[in-house]
Computed example of a mutant assay.
Amino acid sequence: MNDQSLAPHESMELHEMLNFKTLCLAKSKLMQGLVFDQELKALMQKDVEQSTQAIAGLQAVYAKAPFQAPVPPNRPTPILN
């Protein structure tokens, strides 16, 4: 991708992707506290790590948007460790 800014419709779509990915991250993190199977818990932890990386990448692209809305922190408070 070049250094040009994003078009308004691209910015809105990117914002929607950020919202969706943040919601998925929160759901995976929340569900980890309800799961007792260790393999499933490990898979969910992997999803949390990959989602965190994806959100960081999307935020870097979002910085090129001509208008921005604040992005909430992507670290939900853990319920159980």
Score class of each variant (00 low, 15 high):
residue 17 M to R: 09
residue 35 V to G: 01
residue 63 A to Y: 06
residue 73 P to C: 10
residue 5 S to F: 05
residue 47 D to V: 05
residue 42 A to I: 04
residue 36 F to V: 04
residue 61 V to D: 05
residue 35 V to A: 02
residue 41 K to N: 10
residue 73 P to G: 13
residue 3 D to P: 04
residue 53 Q to S: 10
residue 72 P to I: 10
residue 18 L to T: 01
residue 77 T to Y: 12
residue 69 A to N: 12
residue 25 L to N: 07
residue 36 F to A: 06
residue 7 A to C: 04
residue 7 A to E: 14
residue 12 M to K: 15
residue 75 R to L: 12
residue 64 K to R: 15
residue 5 S to C: 08
residue 31 M to L: 12
residue 62 Y to S: 01
residue 17 M to E: 11
residue 46 K to T: 09
residue 41 K to P: 07
residue 44 M to G: 12
residue 47 D to E: 15
residue 67 F to Q: 07
residue 72 P to W: 01
residue 43 L to A: 13
residue 33 G to D: 02
residue 41 K to G: 07
residue 34 L to M: 09
residue 41 K to E: 12
residue 32 Q to N: 06
residue 34 L to P: 00
residue 21 K to N: 05
residue 42 A to Q: 13
residue 31 M to R: 09
residue 45 Q to T: 03
residue 76 P to V: 06
residue 1 M to C: 15
residue 1 M to S: 14
residue 45 Q to A: 15
residue 69 A to T: 14
residue 64 K to V: 02
residue 32 Q to T: 05
residue 36 F to T: 09
residue 77 T to F: 12
residue 72 P to L: 15
residue 48 V to Q: 04
residue 70 P to A: 15
residue 44 M to H: 02
residue 49 E to P: 01
residue 12 M to S: 06
residue 29 K to E: 02
residue 40 L to T: 08
residue 39 E to S: 08
residue 62 Y to I: 02
residue 46 K to P: 03
residue 66 P to R: 02
residue 67 F to C: 04
residue 15 H to G: 01
residue 61 V to M: 08
residue 75 R to V: 15
residue 30 L to F: 12
residue 45 Q to W: 05
residue 40 L to A: 10
residue 60 A to R: 15
residue 11 S to H: 01
residue 13 E to W: 12
residue 60 A to F: 01
residue 57 G to C: 05
residue 32 Q to C: 08
residue 14 L to Q: 02
residue 40 L to I: 14
residue 16 E to C: 00
residue 32 Q to F: 00
residue 42 A to W: 03
residue 27 K to E: 10
residue 67 F to G: 02
residue 24 C to L: 11
residue 42 A to C: 05
residue 33 G to I: 08
residue 76 P to D: 06
residue 79 I to V: 15
residue 69 A to W: 14
residue 75 R to F: 11
residue 47 D to Q: 10
residue 38 Q to W: 08
residue 72 P to D: 07
residue 51 S to Y: 07
residue 51 S to R: 05
residue 26 A to G: 02
residue 45 Q to G: 00
residue 49 E to A: 03
residue 39 E to W: 05
residue 31 M to C: 06
residue 37 D to Y: 05
residue 73 P to A: 14
residue 62 Y to M: 03
residue 26 A to V: 01
residue 47 D to I: 04
residue 50 Q to H: 12
residue 63 A to M: 13
residue 3 D to H: 15
residue 6 L to Y: 03
residue 30 L to R: 12
residue 65 A to D: 01
residue 29 K to G: 09
residue 81 N to F: 11
residue 66 P to L: 03
residue 71 V to I: 14
residue 38 Q to T: 14
residue 8 P to E: 04
residue 71 V to S: 03
residue 11 S to Y: 00
